[in-house]
Amino acid sequence: MLSLYRPGDSVLHRAPAGPKLVVLLVTCLTVFLVDELWFTAVCGTVVLVLWRIALIPYRELGRQLRGLWVVALLLAVFQVWANGWHEAAMTVLRLLALLLLASLVTMTSRTSHIVDALESAARPLALVGMRPGRIAFLIGLTLRFIPLIREKAEEIRAAQRARGVERRPLALLLPLLLKTLTMADAISEALDARGFEST
């Protein structure tokens, strides 16, 4: 599965993922805490400038967040009607500024870099017995499973169509669960065989 990362060579692409995540988090908090229209507008403008710097076309956003413009428009209309112009501008600006910034982080950071950043951020969790170093492994294994599940689902659907069973959710779901659970047992055996030690 391809990620939403858009390759590029801008300053933002080259910036490490960790600090970008921190900036996103801090911006999110301040925008909600400051709660001033002018401040939100400034943030929004800065984010737009950053998009220019990253050289990513705005229509890319529509692909990631389908229905976003409809949501923003409905929200704007509702806010004007219910709370007046000031609140409407505030809410919609805040929503768009944060969305654009978050999407920018996603599109300029490789998934592996974000995973690394999250793994280091989660390192303290090792103290309570969790294993943050497993994040990359689990994400990789999940991505491997997705096409396998799709294949199995298609097999089951074809077999059932051949027997005249059409579109009954449980008739697909149940065999799919049982088959993939069996598959998971085999994969876990293979992991052990390949030297993956879980303890």
Binding site: G140, L141, R144, I187, A190, L191
Partner: peptide, 9 residues
């Protein structure tokens, strides 16, 4: 079955 041995994407 190689499908069940390949564990990464």
């Amino acid at each position: 079955d190689p499908d069940l041995q390949i564990v990464m994407p």
